[in-house]
């Protein structure tokens, strides 16, 4: 019997590793980076084809744009703060006050990520709208002539919707981080006489900080980019950058203006994305349970 040895030809000439990365990169270049670069070209050259910063100047200086930027930032920051708070509290209960079905709740929250964002905005019109569940109930109970709750068609409606939608994105890394805290650590702290609040402050919060920062910066990115919720709530005076781009391009066919705004929006998003990557890299993403 002979050995089933593999051909011992010294290392057959293999393709260098870099070559294999080329096909997907080309696809991405053709379908994503090339179109993206054309936005910049349109913003800088307009329809006339000559380089000018005038489009930029005009758009960036306009009150419409500044208002949109302002709303975008206020909504993103407030929604992110809300997500962090709500996500931290809910994760805390799921992870550290275990109850039967806690895992199921975790799964449900995961599933919520998969649902379209505008579902919440649509639901909120039924709940908090002027003739929604809450207002009708209050009017009936208190015999009020007018709906008492009126925040949905302001930026608060958008913020509340976004908190609902994006809290799971904070909870995922948080739950992963919490699962790495050994139960014995908390038991020892308790046995040493630390109160729950003290344990949260001195053990849980420091351990969760990387997850909070990573989840928070992801939230910030997603809320800056959010479109569906703002569109569905449709408040007249709540215009964010993505909505502005949509209005300019689709309603007014003003591509150059849309492209200028898109350049700013993309730059803002990429900045936030770098922040997110830095946060994840700094705290070693694997530990924070982030991809």
């Amino acid at each position: 019997m002979t050995d089933l040895s593999v051909a011992s030809s010294p290392a057959s000439p293999r393709l260098p590793n870099d070559v294999w990365a080329a096909p997907p990169l080309l696809v991405l270049a053709a379908l994503f980076f090339y179109p993206l670069s054309l936005i910049l070209r349109q913003a800088l050259f307009g329809d006339e084809g000559a380089f000018t910063l005038s489009h930029f100047g005009e758009v960036v200086g306009s009150p419409l744009f500044l208002d949109g930027l302002h709303h975008t930032l206020v909504i993103a920051v407030s929604a992110t703060a809300g997500c962090l708070l709500l996500g931290f509290i809910l994760s805390l209960v799921i992870a550290f006050v275990p109850f039967p079905g806690a895992r199921l709740v975790g799964r449900l929250i995961d599933t919520f990520i998969a649902l379209p964002t505008f579902l919440v905005a649509l639901a909120f019109t039924f709940i908090y709208g002027s003739s929604g569940l809450l207002n009708e109930s209050l009017m009936r109970l208190l015999h009020l002539p007018l709906p008492p709750i009126d925040f949905l068609y302001s930026q608060w409606g958008v913020i509340l919707s976004e908190v609902t939608v994006y809290t799971p994105f904070v909870m995922r890394p948080l739950l992963a981080a919490f699962s790495l805290i050994e139960a014995s650590q908390i038991e020892v702290a308790s046995s040493l006489g630390a109160s729950p609040l003290r344990i949260i402050g001195q053990i849980i919060l420091p351990a969760a900080l990387p997850a909070l920062i990573a989840g928070g910066s992801l939230c910030l990115l997603l809320t800056v980019n959010e479109f569906g919720i703002v569109l569905f709530i449709g408040a007249k005076d709540v215009i964010t950058l993505p909505l502005l781009i949509y209005d300019k391009a689709i309603q007014e066919f003003d591509y150059t203006t849309a492209c200028v705004i898109a350049v700013v929006n993309v730059a803002l998003s990429l900045g936030l994305y770098s922040l997110y990557r830095l946060a994840v890299a700094h705290f070693a993403g694997s530990r924070a349970g982030l991809v």
Binding site: A21, L25, F32, P242, C259, N265, V266, Y273
Partner: peptide
């Protein structure tokens, strides 16, 4: 390259739509 492959997730979808429309 890892960053490059992740970038599309960071760009707002409306801008992606606009970019494709223009391109």
């Amino acid at each position: 390259l890892d960053v490059l492959f992740f970038v599309p997730s960071a760009v707002p979808s409306v801008s992606v739509g606009l970019a494709l429309l223009v391109a």
